[in-house]
Structure formats: C-alpha cells, structure tokens
Design a binder for these strands. Structure first.
Lengths: 363, 363
DNA sequence: GGCGCCATTCAAACCGGTTTAAAATCTGAG
DNA sequence: CTCAGATTTTAAACCGGTTTGAATGGCGCC
C-alpha cells in the first residue's frame, strides 16, 4: 500500500532492478545486436553484408547466422545517411491532380518503373506539384534530403529548365521522351515517328486522302513530335497537308477538336489522334453527329490503352509498350545514379495495331 | 592578357578537364554550417527550426538569417534517423504491373493523396509488389527503414492479414475501403450502397425488372460490397433476384461477362457493372452483338472515370469523388501517424449520374 | 627464438540531424 | 552585494549504419 515509487518505470519488473528496460520499444534489431550475438564488431557485420573482402569464413558464418536468427536487415535510412545513397528514385509530376487522373500514360509508366525498381531493391518517391517553383523546390529537396539518388523528367516542355537544374545539383536524371540536342541530361524514348508513318500508310492504302490530326497539349515535346511525324508522313506519302486541330490530351478536348474538324467545309475522312483517350472521345463525338465509324470516318489513336480493344468499334491505334519503357527507364536511371555512364538501350518499337475503327472512305 | 583567376572554381571552362577533383554532388550546407555562421550551437539551430521554446529572440533572429543566407533546409533523412519520423507515407500495391495500369481508380486516388500530402510537406513512397510475401516484407522494411510513418492498405481482401501485421509493427495504417468489424486498423471509405440503390431505383423507375450485375474480382472487399448492395437494392425495390456474373474489373472480363449474361435464356434488360471500365467494354460487347444501347440494353457503370462522359452513348454511372477521398485519406493518415486518434471524416457522398446509356426497356 | 608480413578484427570517427543534462547567464529579492 | 531561481546556451550522446587507421594474431623463414 504505502509503497514508495522513486522510479516508477523500474518498479514494474521485479527481478531485474539493475537493468533499465524500456518495455514499450519493440524496435527491430540493429547492427549492434547482430554484432553482439555474433561476438564481432559492428564493422565486421557491415563488411559481411556488403560483401567486402577481409572477413574469415568463420566470422562470416557467425554473422550470417546471427542476422538470420534476429531477422535483421540493414536500415536503408541509416545507410543512406552515411553513404549518401538513398536507394530510391524520385518522380516529380507538375500537373493539377485533376489532370493527372485523366492521363492513361501515367499509371502504365509507373507500373513499368516499379517493375524495374523492385528487383533492384530501389524505392520510388512520388511528388505531385502544381507550380513551377514548387517543382524546382521538390527536386532540390529530393536531392539534398537524400531521399532520391536520381529523378525522372517527364512531360518535358520545349524550353524546359529542369535538365539544367538537375545537372547543377549533381543529381542523376533521365528524360522520358525523345532525345534533345545539347541537353546535359540523357533521354530515353521510343521513336513515335515510325508508328505514325505506319498509320498514315495504312490510311493511305485504304484510300484516304484527307487525313486530319488532333494534337496534344501545345508546348509538350511528345505532342510536337507526333504532330511533326504526321506532317512528315503525309509528305512522304505524297498526300496534301491535312487539317490540324490542337487539343490537350483529354476526352473533352478530343471531342471538341473532332467537332471542329468535322465542321470544316471539307472535313477529313480520317483522323489521327495524339492519344487514345481523345480518339475514343472522337468516335463518340462523330457518332453523336450521326456519322458511322469507320464507314464515314476512320479513327486512329495512339498508345493502345487497355480499354481500346473493348470500345465500339475497337480502336485502331499505335501501341507503345509503356510498361517496358518504364522498366527500361528505371534500370537506366539506377545505373546512372550509381555512376555508370549512359548506355543507349533498345526499347520495343512502337507497333501499329489495326482494329475496326478504320476502313476505306465512303466514296 | 593573363587574367588572374583566384577563385578555385575558375578552371572549369578548359576543354579537357584533367581536373583531379571532380566535385560530384555539391554538398549542401548542414546544420553545423548554419550554427557556425550564426555563432550558436547546433542545438540552438535545431530548437529554432522546430519552434521549441527557450531561445532568445536575438539568437533566433541570427539563426534565421544565417539559414536564409546559406539556403539551408534540414535534411529529412538525418531527421528521420534521429526522430524515427520519415515525413513520408507508404503505399504498397500488390498487383502485377500489367493489371495496375488498367485500374482507373489508382491514378485518381494517387492524385488525391498527393494533393493532401504536399501541403503537409509529406512525401509518398510507392511500391508495387507481386507476391504476398514481398508485400509483407515491404511493409516491414518501410517501417524499419524509417521510410514511412504510416501506410495505406488498399484492395483489402476478406481474410487480409495486413491490418494485424501493421498493428504488430506499431505502424500507423489506414484501410481504404469500407469499414470492417474487429479490425485493429481504422478504415476510410464511402458507402457504395447508396449509389447502387439510386441506380437500381433509376432502372426500376424506367421500367426494368431484370437487372443483372457484373461484379469485380472475387475476394475483394469493395467488389463484395457492391454486389451485396445490388442484391439489397433489388430486394428493397421489390424486384426478383437478378442474374450475376463474376468478372475482374478489366475490359476483357467485362466483355466476357456481358456475353455470358446476354446468352441467358432470359437476358437482363439492364446491367449494373462494378466499374466503368467493364461497363464501357460491356457496351461494346452488346453493340457487337447487334444490340443497341440504351434501347435494347441499359448499362450503368461505377466510378465515373474521365472518359465515361465521352463514350457513345455517354455512360450513366455512379460517381465517386476519388480525388477527395484520397485527399481525406492522406490527411487522416498523417494525423494518425502523428499519434492523434482516428476521427471519422465525412467524405463527399457517391452521386448518381444519369447520362444516355440508360432508357426504358424495349417492350 | 626472433622477425616481418599478411589476413583479420575492431574501436572510433563520421553522416546530419534531435534531445538531454548540465553549464552559463540573467533576474530580482533580501 | 549575494544568492536562489529562471532563462538561455551548449557539449555530448544518440539514431543505425559505413569507413578508416591501428591493433591483434597466425605463420613462414632466417
């Protein structure tokens, strides 16, 4: 009853009064615990897990056993602090959240990146920002905080300053998209032009002569690339210039642009869209006007999103293996972050997928 | 003539930099640099940036000036090591990469999470794993490595062991989805049932009596919830049980299930799908059989993905504000990770969106 | 037996912060 | 002018690893 409790926490466990034992912490074992159990120093344990020479096989054996018994794995955080390696890559996306969710490219790319990263035991740190300043700040913090060893640069704009920024920070970086001249940062991208050419040839062979294009958001490198490829392909095929309508990669934009093209005095008989989302919306827009696809209007998309095969009519499109692209990008950036030089990697080429949204034009 | 270049960095413009010292990553200032410049100790700087009492305003002033001059910001990594707080949340997704990219829920949720996280200066660590063991491992490492202070649990299965796991790790967690009884982990989800009821009432009012359902992947909590809501809503409306076909949330599955339902001796006149992706594929499947939507078959989706408004016919669906959900989840989990108790938050209710894919049944 | 050499091993410093306990300084009352 | 009490400041330990420089031990050789 009148017990004195000079040390309330110590009074609970009776048999061990000398050892102060914090009962709450169930924290995982540290390198020190392993070292103690194996009767070696922390340094030896560190050598073993990092495969460094200079450890007797007897000691190595004991360390491995101790680590296994305790279920110990080195803490990536602590390791990052001493080695300045985060074992993680960063992906910063500047886009309002509402727009992010409409982009079918993003989740596929992310899936690919992850599938490339997880075997290498790298994590991915994601940030979505809205302003350019916040974006710059994000890269700086990612670098300085030791949260990421390298970053992906996506949605590159024509006058983008991020390559210079990451270069100045000494942060490994990889541009996702077509290569650019004079860039301090290497790029990894597939050649959109080949697929576009194949699509135009396909339409040409069907008999189309007025082939329009609905382009993606202006100022973006990949939107420009696809637009230029369309112009060049028309030229190569000996066809006249076609009508162009600028859009923004969204369903709403695709629908609007489609109406604009069909309102022309001489509307195109086929339209090539800069992505599938706009193409699907375009089919709906044309159908809504009483046109039949593909009889009255042929439609070609770009990306081959999972849904494209399952709309009516199934969409003829240009397939990019975005997952493979993401995987290759992840591997490449890890390699760059580890200090290896850039090595050009072959990506699976874009592939033209003919489905039912294209047909000969009505005579 | 011979200009003097006293600055050490001046030799950089030489064409062949045989420089022995390539300053790779320019190291950013540390707390020590700031302390030295402000002529105080590291502890004082730490107190200032953490808003702790016991610093004279003179000292505080000097510290802030020094930090501003050096452009110093504390390193999240080092801070994580000493405080065991990562200022980051984790999201582990167990799904093959191919499937991840077909899920329209995911990017929207991610966008919402990010929009909730970035004002709080929290980062998001993403991991995609394929096996259950890798998943468990991921949570353990996230926790032990100090990479994340809390984790989201998504795609909960009926007998999921993750709540027990994170609870055992002492890791804050939040289930994304309907609440569950006896779970050690709180859940945040909208009530799917209300939307489903509204949809069934809508179809009933139009005159439908045979209302089928294409459900999502079996074993998943949200797929089950929608299926049960459908059964209950039919019952409430005084309608007979409808035909059910299990699918998997993908376009292919939706198409297959649609054909199965339409092959029945007495096919339904309306189908409620567990997500929009399957509904859109269902429209195409029905159209491919020569049926007209909505005249011969009414279709209702679930989610209201951005494309749903722009398919032909525009999809009647049940809208979830997934972005708001993600944002609320992020705020809630941060709060949990900071040790605050769970506080039920109101989510925007699901909303029934009537478009053109529903109509009275052909008589 | 004494010596040098090489292979192991380890104590200690370090990464960049936080936090504690104690020292230093400043008050104001007596 | 003293001294207790409150306020401000700092040195040092710590988080969990890596890395270095030096100590230890075993072995062959003269």
């Amino acid at each position: 009853m009148a017990h004195q409790h000079p040390e309330p926490s110590a009074a609970q466990t009776d048999p061990e009064p000398a050892a102060p034992m914090p009962p709450r912490r169930r924290s995982r074992p540290t390198i020190g615990d392993v070292a103690a159990l194996a009767r070696v120093s922390k340094a030896t344990v560190s050598f073993v897990v990092n495969g460094r020479a200079g450890v007797s096989s007897r000691a190595r054996q004991r360390v491995l056993e101790a680590a296994a018994e305790l279920g110990w794995q080195p803490s990536a955080g602590a390791r990052a602090l001493s080695t300045r390696r985060a074992q993680a890559l960063g992906l910063v996306i500047r886009r309002p959240p509402e727009l992010l969710s409409t982009d079918p490219f993003f989740p596929q790319f992310l899936a690919g990146v992850e599938s490339g990263l997880s075997p290498l035991d790298y994590a991915l740190v994601l940030q979505v920002v809205e302003t350019e300043e916040a974006e710059r700040n994000a890269y700086e913090r990612l670098s300085h905080d030791g949260r990421a060893d390298g970053v992906f640069l996506t949605d590159l704009q024509l006058d983008d300053r991020r390559p210079v920024l990451t270069d100045g920070l000494g942060l490994a970086a990889l541009i996702i998209g077509p290569e650019r001249r004079d860039s301090p940062v290497p790029a990894l991208g597939v050649d959109d032009a080949e697929g576009v050419r194949r699509a135009v040839e396909h339409l040409h062979a069907l008999g189309h002569r007025r082939i329009g294009h609905v382009s993606g958001a202006e100022g973006y490198v990949h939107a420009e690339a696809r637009r230029r490829a369309w112009t060049a392909a028309l030229d190569d095929a000996g066809l006249p210039e076609g009508p162009l309508e600028a859009a923004d990669f969204t369903g709403a934009g695709g629908a609007r642009a489609t109406h604009a093209l069909l309102d022309l005095p001489e509307p195109p008989t086929a339209i090539l869209y800069a992505n599938d989302l706009m193409a699907i919306a375009g089919i709906a827009a044309a159908t809504g006007r009483g046109l039949r696809v593909p009889e009255d209007l042929s439609v070609v998309g770009f990306d081959d999103i999972p849904l494209s095969e399952y709309v009516a009519p199934p969409l003829t499109t240009i397939r990019q293996d975005v997952i493979a692209w993401g995987r290759a990008a992840a591997q490449q950036l890890v390699s760059l972050a580890q200090g290896h030089p850039f090595q050009a990697t072959a990506l699976p080429p874009v592939e033209f997928v003919a489905r039912a949204s294209t047909a000969p034009p009505a005579r």
